[in-house]
Computed example of a mutant assay.
Amino acid sequence: MQTVKIVVTGPFNAGKTEFIRSVSEIDVVSTERKISAEAEKVKSTTTVAMDFGRITVDDDLVLYLFGTPGQKRFDFMWEILSEGMLGFVVLVDSSRPETFREARSILETFRAYAPTPYVVAANKQDMDEAWDLDDMRVALRLDSKVRFLPVIATDKEKVKKVLLELLYSILAEMEAGGS
C-alpha cells in the first residue's frame, strides 16, 4: 500500500478544514480553538496546529491530508507539516480578494520548503461575489502552466477533482524522475 502525504494550505478562512472534511473517510482530527470576537465576524474557530484526514483512492493508494493553520501566528507549523509531503494544494477564497496577496506568499513559502507539485484551488466559486478564475490567475500572478481549479470545499466531487489533478502531477513528476 502506497501512502501519499498532501498538505492543504491557504489563508485564514479559505476553507481548508471543510475541504478535508468533505472527502475524509475518517473523522477529521482537528485542532480548532475558539477565536477572538474580532475574527468571530468571519467564523468562531480556527485551526491552531493542523487538520488530518484520510482518503483511500484504490487498493494500492491512500492519501493523508494535512491542513495547515491559516493564521500567521501559527505559521511555525507550516514547515513541520510540509516535511515529507509529495504535493500541496493552496486554497484561496474567491470571494475575498484582500487575501490574494497572502495566498501568493503562502504559495511561495511552501515552494521554498519543498519543490513538489502543487495546484491552486479557487474556493467558494458558488458565491455571487466570487472572482472569475482568469481574473484571479492574474491577481495571484500564477503562470499559465500552474493548475488552477475551481472548487467548493463542501462539495466532495469537486474536492476529489482537485486532489486527482494534484495526484496526476505527482505521478507525472515521479515518472519523469524515474526515467
Rank of each mutant, 00 (worst) to 15 (best):
K160T: 14
K41Q: 14
I26N: 11
M127S: 10
K161F: 11
E157C: 08
T56K: 15
S169L: 15
P11W: 00
L107F: 06
M85R: 07
A37C: 09
W131Y: 12
W131D: 03
T47M: 10
G15E: 03
F66Q: 01
G67M: 05
D134Y: 07
S30V: 11
S94H: 04
D134F: 08
F74N: 08
G53T: 01
T46C: 12
I170N: 05
K124C: 01
K156V: 09
P97V: 04
S22F: 02
E102R: 11
Y64D: 12
M174S: 13
P150N: 07
L149D: 02
S179F: 11
T68S: 15
S94N: 07
P115N: 15
T99C: 04
F76Q: 08
Y118T: 04
K5A: 03
I80F: 09
V48M: 13
T9M: 09
E18Q: 14
L81K: 01
V57Q: 04
T17G: 05
V119S: 03
T116D: 03
A114V: 07
D155G: 00
L149H: 07
E108N: 13
S30H: 07
V119R: 02
S44Y: 10
T56Y: 08
Y113R: 06
V23R: 05
M50R: 13
M85K: 09
V151D: 04
F148E: 04
R104S: 14
P69F: 09
D132C: 10
M50G: 01
T68G: 05
D134I: 09
P117I: 04
S36L: 12
V48P: 03
E98R: 09
F12W: 09
L65K: 00
E102F: 03
V57L: 13
R104F: 13
S24H: 02
E98P: 05
W78H: 15
E40L: 10
V162C: 05
S30W: 06
A130Q: 07
I152K: 02
R33Y: 10
Y118E: 01
M50I: 08
V7E: 02
T47W: 08
R104E: 15
P150D: 03
A112P: 04
A122G: 04
A14S: 15
D135P: 00
E79V: 08
R147P: 08
G177A: 13
A39V: 10
T17P: 05
E108A: 12
E129T: 15
G70Q: 03
K5I: 05
T68I: 10
T116A: 13
G178W: 11
R104I: 03
I170K: 04
T45Y: 12
F148Y: 09
S44N: 13
L171F: 13
K43T: 15
A37T: 14
V90Y: 01
V28M: 06
S105I: 14
V90W: 00
I20P: 01
V138M: 10
Y168L: 12
E129H: 10
D134E: 15
F88R: 01
R96G: 01
D59Y: 09
R101T: 14
V7S: 02
A130T: 06
T154G: 08
I106E: 01
K145L: 10
L91E: 03
M77N: 07
G15Y: 03
